[in-house]
C-alpha cells in the first residue's frame, strides 16, 4: 500500500474538491455547512489514503463519506428546520412562476429526511445506479427504491399541481431504474 503522501492528497483535493463540494451542498442546502461537510469528509479520506490506491477510489470514498456524514449530522442534531439559501417570496405568473416553483422544489428537497434526500441526489444528480447508490448508503437496493419513491412522492405532493409528474424526473423508466 502507498504511504500517506501529502502531495498526492493535495493534488486530489485540488482536482476534485469543487465537484465534491457540489454534492455536499445538495445534501445540506447551505454553503457553509457544505464546506464543513467537505472538510470532515476529506479528513476521513486522508486517514484512509494509504489504502485508496487511485484517485477514482478516493473520490468514491469521499463521496460516501460526505453522504454518510451528512446523514449522521442530521441524526445527531435532530434538525427540524432545514437551512436554505433562498426562500421563495410568492408565486407569480410566467417566469416568476417558474422561479417560484423551482424555489419551492428546492425547499421541498431540503426538507426531505436525510436518507431520502441523499438517495435522490445520488440517483438524479450523481447519476449513480440503484446498486451504486445502495453501496454508498450502505443499504439494500430495495431500500434505495423505496427511499427514492417516497422522496419523489413527497416532492410531488409539495409542488401540487404546479408541474406534471413527467416534468419532475426523467420519463424514461430505463433511465430511472437502471
Amino acid at each position: 500500500m502507498p504511504r500517506r503522501d501529502p502531495a498526492a492528497f493535495a493534488e486530489f483535493v485540488a482536482a476534485r474538491s469543487a465537484s465534491l463540494h457540489r454534492t455536499a451542498y445538495l445534501l445540506v442546502g447551505d454553503r457553509g455547512l457544505a464546506q464543513d461537510l467537505l472538510q470532515e469528509a476529506l479528513t476521513k479520506t486522508y486517514v484512509a489514503w494509504p489504502r485508496l490506491r487511485d484517485p477514482s477510489k478516493a473520490e468514491a470514498y469521499t463521496r460516501k463519506a460526505i453522504t454518510t456524514t451528512a446523514i449522521t449530522w442530521y441524526r445527531r442534531r435532530s434538525w427540524g428546520e432545514r437551512p436554505v439559501d433562498t426562500v421563495p417570496e410568492r408565486v407569480g405568473a410566467g417566469h416568476d412562476d417558474d422561479v417560484a416553483t423551482r424555489d419551492l422544489l428546492w425547499q421541498a428537497l431540503q426538507a426531505l429526511p436525510p436518507r431520502q434526500r441523499a438517495a435522490i441526489v445520488l440517483r438524479f444528480y450523481e447519476d449513480l445506479t440503484e446498486v451504486q447508490t445502495a453501496a454508498v448508503l450502505g443499504c439494500a437496493v430495495g431500500t434505495v427504491k423505496s427511499q427514492v419513491s417516497t422522496g419523489l412522492r413527497t416532492l410531488r405532493t409539495r409542488l401540487g399541481d404546479r408541474i406534471a409528474d413527467s416534468d419532475l424526473i426523467p420519463a424514461d423508466p430505463l433511465e430511472v431504474t437502471r
Partner: peptide, 15 residues
C-alpha cells in the same frame, strides 16, 4: 432531464 435534475445542476453549478 426533468425539473429536479435541472434544479440540482443549476444550484450546484453556481457554487
Amino acid at each position: 432531464t426533468g425539473l429536479l435534475n435541472d434544479l440540482m445542476r443549476d444550484r450546484a453549478d453556481h457554487l
